[in-house]
Design a protein around this nucleic acid. Structure first.
Length: 213
DNA sequence: AACCAGGACGTGA
DNA sequence: TCACGTCATGGT
């Protein structure tokens, strides 16, 4: 089956996913289906609307590295509740403070360092969109995180390849065991229209499909 | 009670 | 380049 057909099949089965989850004012949950407060935004591609929301997505992308979203979201909510979910506060906070707050996401020492490095970088952007190479040159940002940031925070059609994607395509017989990141990414680039909405939904659907089964 | 979760980096070969 | 060790918490 083709890449495009697989998308149709997944979409039919699971519907729009509306990634990336955002917390909004007054909200204290990242769970899906929460309309009034944050959570996911089904069929609403107008987010992120502010720099703060863009930064929130970037932060989430770092916190969820090799970690379930359930755990990462706890760390994100801790940051939010302590008014630390912004660049200046993260730079101002001590390492020890951040260690405690993001602990549920695991790798708290590495992730604290990553958040501080990224915060400084984000301020330097002054609202501009980073290039992929700029992101990859940052300590703590690899290909998947860079693509997640570009796709979900900046609406740039970069397909996000994660462990689920590899397993999924391997099972479909579309890639070999040791296909590399860029090889897998090219498969989507070559077979899909470069539409950020399509890329956003596709990646989210692969994850949702894997979780459901 | 192992196993793994929406990875990335450091190292030695 | 590449294979492997390290980082860390908390769900099933």
């Amino acid at each position: 089956m083709r890449i495009k057909e697989i998308f149709e099949q997944l979409f039919e089965r699971h519907g729009p996913q509306g990634w990336w989850p955002l917390v909004e004012l007054g909200d204290l949950t990242y769970k899906p289906g929460c309309k009034k407060y944050g959570g996911y935004h089904p069929k609403d591609y107008s987010y992120p609307k502010t720099k703060l929301q863009q930064f929130e997505i970037c932060t989430g992308a770092i916190l969820t590295q090799n970690t379930s979203w359930n755990q990462a979201s706890k760390a994100l909510l801790n940051l939010y509740k302590q008014n630390l979910l912004n660049t200046k506060s993260i730079l101002k906070a001590t390492k020890e403070t951040l260690h405690k707050i993001i602990r549920p996401a695991g790798y708290f020492r590495q992730k604290t360092k990553k958040l501080k490095i990224f915060s400084k970088f984000f301020i330097g952007l002054d609202g501009k969109r980073p290039t992929r190479d700029q992101l990859l040159n940052l300590w703590g940002i690899g290909p998947e995180t860079a693509d997640s940031i570009l796709l979900y925070a900046y609406k740039q059609p970069e397909f996000v390849v994660d462990a689920y994607t590899k397993r999924f395509l391997l099972k479909k017989g579309l890639i070999s065991e040791k296909a590399k990141y860029n090889e897998i990414k090219a498969l989507f680039d070559d077979n899909l229209k470069k539409d950020y909405k399509l890329f956003q939904e596709y990646h989210a659907l692969i994850v949702e499909n894997a979780k459901r089964k």
